[in-house]
Simulated scan of single mutants.
Amino acid sequence: MVYPAKLTAEAIVRSALDLLEGGGKEALNMRALAGRLSVQPSSLYRYYPDRAALVAALEDHAALSLHGALREASRDRLPREALSAAAHAYLDYARAHPHLYGLMLAPRPPAPAGPGPGKDLWNHVLHLVGAVTGIPDDTGAAVAYWAFLHGYVQLERSGGFGLSGPRGGFERGLKALIRGLAHPDEEKGEGGAGP
């Protein structure tokens, strides 16, 4: 039991994550969350004024954890190897946390990206891609990379590959994408040992 005096924003997010991961976005409501924490729903509003604020905190958590997974996977690797390892970490994260991933990348109206975990995640992807293309702020290439990853995840999640499965399509597509993004000097140099 969590007593209201000991209730924290972190405890609320942890319990909300359990609800989300266990039952999807539909299971995430303030009444169920309050019941899980053994508090009155009104106690939650002191930390999160509404469900949208709680969802935003969960999205931040998802961006932080995905960023950490990509950073860890790509650490101390040559550029092309780092980009490939990050892609596999992205796919692993989406598979391990489907509801959290879905929440983070749910459709929403375009808006300027302010500072925060989502922007930090994007900047890391931009850095990894830029190390391969040779262009530090290569937004077009980063969008192509992210679109490939997200598209694959969505097709896999929806059963879009059918009974035959993707038949190595992820590896083949990833290798072709990275090869196509590679700066000519990077392809001949140290990063050429990648996929």
Rank of each mutant, 00 (worst) to 15 (best):
P110K: 08
A111I: 00
P112Y: 09
G114V: 01
G114P: 08
G116W: 13
G116F: 06
G116A: 01
P117I: 00
G118C: 04
G118Y: 10
G118L: 09
K119S: 13
K119R: 15
W122H: 06
N123W: 04
L126Q: 01
H127G: 04
L128W: 08
L128H: 02
V129C: 12
G130F: 02
A131L: 08
V132E: 05
T133Y: 01
T133P: 03
G134I: 08
G134W: 05
G134C: 05
I135Q: 15
I135G: 10
I135H: 15
P136R: 12
P136S: 13
P136C: 12
T139F: 11
G140A: 04
G140M: 02
A141S: 08
A141M: 12
A142T: 06
V143N: 06
Y145S: 12
W146S: 15
W146H: 09
L149V: 05
L149W: 00
L149M: 09
L149D: 02
H150D: 15
H150M: 14
G151Q: 11
G151C: 14
Q154E: 07
Q154T: 05
L155W: 04
L155I: 06
E156G: 07
R157E: 15
S158P: 10
F161C: 05
F161T: 06
G162W: 00
L163F: 05
L163M: 15
S164V: 07
G165S: 07
G165A: 13
P166G: 10
P166W: 00
R167T: 04
R167H: 11
G168T: 01
G168M: 05
G168R: 03
F170V: 00
F170C: 01
F170P: 03
F170N: 06
E171T: 00
R172H: 11
G173S: 12
G173V: 03
G173F: 10
L174M: 13
L174F: 04
L174K: 01
